[in-house]
Nucleic acid binder design. Structure first.
Length: 492
RNA sequence: GUCCCCGUCGUCUAGCCAGGUCCAGGACACCGGCCUUUCACGCCGGCAGCACGGGUUCGAAUCCCGUCGGGGACGCCA
């Protein structure tokens, strides 16, 4: 049995596109599942964009996601000799020919065809040149491109795609495509095949946009006498308007780095991305790595494009709500110690990190995380919605203020009274706090909820949260008392 | 224009290959109820879909044809 070898060939763009990430994930999963190798190959032939910085952007994204590769990164430019050698080989074997037509000539023909609403295909002018004619052009040093000589046959190129099934493309529908530019540089179509042959790639998993290229690439494989890999094309991810998602039109939400910034867990994103175009066949949607490896197969890959459900103007949903939901699930279920480590950089960035959280306050910190993580979806939530637990500079939600403060102006007196009661407590715990609060409510002849919600608002700034008495204990007597006393400022 | 691919709830999808168990199942979102001091937690419930038209069949989401809709590829880009 031959070795299972996959590859992920991104071009350096400075960031990892979530669509690219999904492709990488599928390749990685397949390789891992079949004890194969994943080769990382940077397609850096576009010198303009191929700065070290943009290469790092890709590697950085992959690393964060936890996608590990076994070979590479290789760089396409390092194999330029292979590409030109292959072109020469095709020329020598009669699978390709020199084409002396100029860009201008072709452009004119293309326009004529378009004007007549005709399909344009290269008319093979140079394919039919006599040896003498070719020799004359060469002697005159006429610039030329190299075109692939597509066999003139009545039948079709046929291959079996692991996702799309049997695909056919008639030979007569394939034009003699260019494989080498007039400046001597081989084109992507050729380079890609040559690289895959050299890297002994056995399975090519890529986006459906590569599907139309495949018959031409197969022709190259055959002409080069190489064994065909297995192809598996996956559906594309589009936006709500069914457009390809791109950084240019959608901004940072297409970059995996963005998800790191907004507090996604790598696995949360991975799990979401995997589900975009693949399903296990049963109703399972949450997978740990082992389960995913076990469940993943080409069979579950969908053939229709999927839509990244993202609405720009909804502040509640900074990305696809399902992604948030899945991330929230992992946020709530990973071990607290792990969570603490993940939250730390976010708190540091906000200057609300305290070294003691890893020392004498560790237990308190973990308990607090445990208490508040229940309804959070991203790591930044701990520094925004959860800010009041770690800092004094939290803001009070407008809605909470309106609902719990403004409606009961007398809270301006009541809250400080509550502070006094709490302060007087010798044993400040969940039970005594609750008793004290309820007792005061009874004396004032008001519903406990008024007091409780009022204190929730001034102590946490939030409308919603965990059970109030847990919160009060977690916050600690001192902070609670101070915040309740200070409440008067909210009535100004 | 040519070629290729796709079309099940708002979104991700199961079911389609081997037609009946599907007046179509799950998840997210949304709505309602319960719980509760609150809630974006939890529990319970609800809304909502086989693109359309023919055909085959006792029976079609599933098979066939057509229409419409969507996407992709057609570069001396990658």
């Amino acid at each position: 049995m031959s070795e299972v070898r996959l590859r992920f060939p991104p071009s350096p763009t400075g960031y990892l596109h979530i669509g690219g990430a999904r492709t990488a994930i599928y390749n990685w999963l397949y390789a891992k599942k079949h004890n194969g190798k994943l080769v990382l190959r940077i397609e850096d032939t576009d010198a303009e964009r191929s700065t070290q910085e943009s290469i790092d952007g890709i590697l950085d994204g992959l690393t964060w996601l936890g996608i590990t590769w076994d070979e590479g990164p290789y760089f396409q430019t390092e194999f330029a000799n292979d590409h030109t050698a292959a072109a020469q080989k095709l020329l020598n074997s009669g699978h390709a020919y020199k084409c002396f037509c100029t860009k201008e000539e072709l452009e004119a023909k293309r326009e004529t065809a378009q004007a007549a609403k005709q399909d344009f295909k290269y008319d093979k002018t140079c394919r039919n040149l006599s040896t003498d004619e070719v020799a004359a052009k060469e002697a005159a040093e006429t610039p030329y491109v190299i075109r692939f000589k597509v066999p003139e046959r009545d039948d079709a190129v046929i291959f079996e795609d692991e996702v799309y099934g049997r695909i056919e493309r008639k030979y007569c529908d394939i034009e003699d495509f260019v494989i080498v530019r007039s400046n001597g540089k081989p084109l992507y179509l050729l380079c890609n095949v040559v690289d895959d042959i050299r890297d002994r790639i056995s399975h090519i998993i890529r986006g459906q946009d590569g599907l139309a290229n495949t018959p031409r690439q197969i022709l190259i494989y055959e002409a080069l006498g190489a064994k065909l890999p297995t192809f598996a094309h996956m559906p594309l991810t589009l936006d709500l308007q069914k457009r390809k998602i791109s950084k240019r039109s959608h901004g940072e939400i297409v970059a995996v780095q963005y998800y790191r910034e907004i507090g996604f867990l790598p696995w949360g994103l991975t799990n979401f991305l995997v589900l975009l175009g693949w399903s296990s066949g049963d109703d399972q949607e949450l997978f740990n790595k082992t389960e995913l490896l076990d469940a993943f197969s080409f069979k579950g890959i969908s053939r229709s494009n999927s839509i990244f459900n993202y609405q720009k103007d909804d502040p509640k949903f900074i990305t696809d709500p399902k992604a948030l939901s899945i991330n929230g699930h992992y946020l709530q279920s990973i071990p607290v110690a792990e969570l603490a480590a993940k939250v730390r950089p976010f708190m540091e960035k906000e200057n609300i990190w305290d070294a003691a959280y890893e020392a004498e306050k560790k237990e308190w910190f973990h308990q607090t995380l445990e208490l508040i993580r229940e309804r959070y979806h991203t790591l930044v939530d701990f520094t925004t919605m959860g800010r009041a637990y770690f800092a004094e500079d939290f803001t009070i939600e407008e809605r909470a203020k309106k609902k719990n403060i403004v409606k009961n102006p007398q809270l301006e007196q009541w809250l400080p009274m509550l502070a006094d009661r709490f302060e007087a407590l010798t044993d400040y715990n969940k039970e005594t706090v609750e008793q004290a609060a309820r007792a005061l409510a009874e004396e004032l002849e008001i519903k406990p909820g008024i007091l409780i919600n009022g204190s929730r608002t001034v102590t946490t700034g939030c409308l919603a949260g965990p059970g109030m008495f847990d919160v009060l204990v977690t916050l600690g007597k001192e902070r609670v008392v101070a915040r309740l006393r200070n409440a008067t400022k909210h009535f100004a």
